[in-house]
Design a protein around this nucleic acid. Sequence first.
DNA 1: ACCGTAAATCGTCGATCAACGATAAAGGTA
DNA 2: TACCTTTATCGTTGATCGACGATTTACGGT
Lengths: 110, 110
Amino acid sequence: MSARKSKVRCCDETPVNVEGVSEGELLARLAKALAHPARVTIVRMLIERASCVCGEIVGELPLAQSTVSQHLKILKQSGLVQGDIDGPKVCYCINKKMLKLLQTLVSGLK
Amino acid sequence: MSARKSKVRCCDETPVNVEGVSEGELLARLAKALAHPARVTIVRMLIERASCVCGEIVGELPLAQSTVSQHLKILKQSGLVQGDIDGPKVCYCINKKMLKLLQTLVSGLK
DNA sequence: ACCGTAAATCGTCGATCAACGATAAAGGTA
DNA sequence: TACCTTTATCGTTGATCGACGATTTACGGT
């Protein structure tokens, strides 16, 4: 093996591609990512546990593995969540920048 | 005419029925209401202009009147927006309690 | 009573969502 | 290599969304 086979830390810094997207569009996208109870639960889990897991998420939700995988895909596409491959598993975690952005956009509604 | 035909103020206090709904469910609902750019625009308009109008909203969006009406319905169902009938027109405005609730729920994501 | 304006509702259509089981891909281990 | 585990993807199904035009409903004004 090279340096380290599987790094414990995952989801380092984040690109966050938000090119030419209006604030309204962006807020709508992020809101859409949260527009399902299961996804809210996933986000909360990822925030709570700094450690990012995937199988655990499946175990915690009353949904099939494929369904959870779909929700994770949607969350990843929104940028709110990232997933790093760690051996046979995938390590998911929150993109704090995006979460912060969402919070800023929502708080700015006034 | 009796006292005042059409009150200038509209959207007084708000009921806000959030009975037996978990926080996650609630956040998901509110997020869903914002999960479309047109609805974000509407919410922003209503926040900006204390005066609440409906025809103006239609005039400002590149959408048919019926489509805007649908979006308004969704926003009303979420509780984020209220509409009071004012003669032949309908006066829409933000439910500040709900907006605050949304902001609290999103800010609480940490 | 009649007309005009404002808004909601209806019906339709294509697109997307949400869920599942089944299957495939990718990596670790014996 | 063969297996096992983990996750993603495929294919399907029913439900909901988003948009529209057309129609209906509700008021105000004449």
